[in-house]
């Protein structure tokens, strides 16, 4: 997939675990893992909004388009 997810990098910068983020955002750890590993087919705006709020970042910090 040419959309790259940088959730692990942002989590590392914020010193936050995936479990903690899942609890704060209110989605399951399994779903957040799908997003982190780049297996997700779609992201709801509401999920993206909650993640950006909790990590204090912009959607562009999490998602990046890569050629090919």
């Amino acid at each position: 997939m040419s959309i790259e997810v940088s959730l692990d990098r942002v989590l590392l910068e914020r010193k936050m675990t995936l479990t903690e983020l899942a609890e704060r955002v209110g989605i399951t750890l399994a779903n957040l893992s799908i997003l982190k590993t780049g297996k997700a087919r779609a992201v709801r705006f509401s999920t993206l909004e909650a993640i950006c709020r909790e990590l204090d970042c912009q959607p562009g910090d999490l998602l990046r388009y890569r050629e090919g």
């Binding site: 957040l32 087919r41 992201v43 709801r44 999920t47």
Partner: peptide
């Protein structure tokens, strides 16, 4: 179903 399952 797969699309739905992989939507976060």
């Amino acid at each position: 179903q797969t699309d739905s399952d992989l939507t976060v």
